[in-house]
């Protein structure tokens, strides 16, 4: 008698647990959208904005030896929080999970060197850009390459999967490419003289040539320009509009030139001007 009763109870409990799991799986569509946890009013009410930044990409977003988050993007993040009148909470991301962090409501805003591309535009909303990058070409100072025509028929070093590789394979077919898997390999190849020049994102090359003074970024920008912009979750109009206004306001105040001078200039060396990176004051 008693044993039967226990067995029945166990059966009921397990069935109930299985049912809950199934229901939880099905009932997903009703939530979200109705209330937006990342709208400007919601952020103000909470008193904190959660911003995704890099933790390992100097000089844009990194952690210095005192354990503080610093960099060009981080400084902008502090300014954004200040202008919203809220505290800032940083969430560290890497290149692969910037989109997911937004879409799963882990962060309100991404300021992580996020380049605008058509594919990304389909999954997140970009605000106005605050920085521009394009492909640059670095070469030895004693044999500088300053024009693309100098590269025809010569070996140019690139890393696979970069915008530099795409640009040269589609638009500069006369240039021979030597492709490598990592940044370390490509710079070693250049040092060993296996190509006349090396092409990569210009901001990255500026920083590298600063610590390798025998080389110079002879061509600062070729090919299409890409822009780096803040991103919000798709459909978050409230925060998107506010961020657009904020970027316009800060651009007018030359805030980004100032940000450039304090955060990026020490890494980029003298030959780079703020106007190579920062967008013009319209």
């Amino acid at each position: 008698m008693k044993k039967n009763w226990v067995r029945k109870l166990i059966t009921i409990v397990t069935m109930a647990a299985a049912l809950v799991l199934v229901l939880a799986g099905c009932g997903n569509s009703k939530s979200s959208s109705s209330n937006n946890p990342s709208s400007v009013s919601a952020i103000k009410k909470k008193g904190t904005i959660r911003i995704a930044v890099f933790g390992d990409l100097p000089p844009y977003g990194w952690v210095n030896k005192d354990g503080k988050r610093v960099g060009y993007d981080v400084k902008l993040a502090h300014q954004v929080a200040k202008d919203l009148g809220v505290k800032v909470k940083f969430v560290q991301v890497n290149a692969n999970n910037r989109v997911d962090a937004l879409n799963s409501n882990k962060v309100d805003l991404v300021l992580a060197n996020f380049t605008v591309t058509p594919q990304r535009k389909q999954v997140v909303s970009f605000a106005k850009p605050y920085m521009k990058v394009s492909v640059g070409v670095v070469s030895p100072k004693n044999k500088p390459v300053t024009k693309v025509s100098q590269l025809q028929g010569k070996n140019v070093i690139v890393t696979k999967g970069t915008t530099a590789e795409t640009y040269f394979t589609t638009d500069q077919k006369k240039v021979k490419l030597l492709k490598f898997d990592s940044k370390t390999q490509q710079f070693n190849a250049l040092k060993n003289g296996r190509g006349v020049a090396l092409a990569d994102d210009n901001s990255y090359l500026y920083a590298w040539s600063k610590s390798n003074p025998k080389y110079t970024v002879g061509i600062k920008s070729i090919g299409p320009k890409s822009y780096i912009a803040p991103a919000v979750k798709k459909g978050n109009k409230s925060l998107l509009n506010w961020t657009n206004k904020e970027i316009t306001k800060l651009t007018k105040k030359s805030y980004f030139v100032n940000d450039y001078n304090t955060e990026l200039k020490p890494y980029f060396g003298k030959e780079v001007k703020p106007s190579d990176i920062v967008l013009p004051t319209k």
Partner: peptide, 16 residues
């Protein structure tokens, strides 16, 4: 998933 564990801190230090 962005937990600040010993490996993550290590990478921050390496890159910095």
């Amino acid at each position: 998933i962005s937990v600040m564990d010993v490996i993550n801190i290590g990478q921050q230090i390496i890159e910095a």
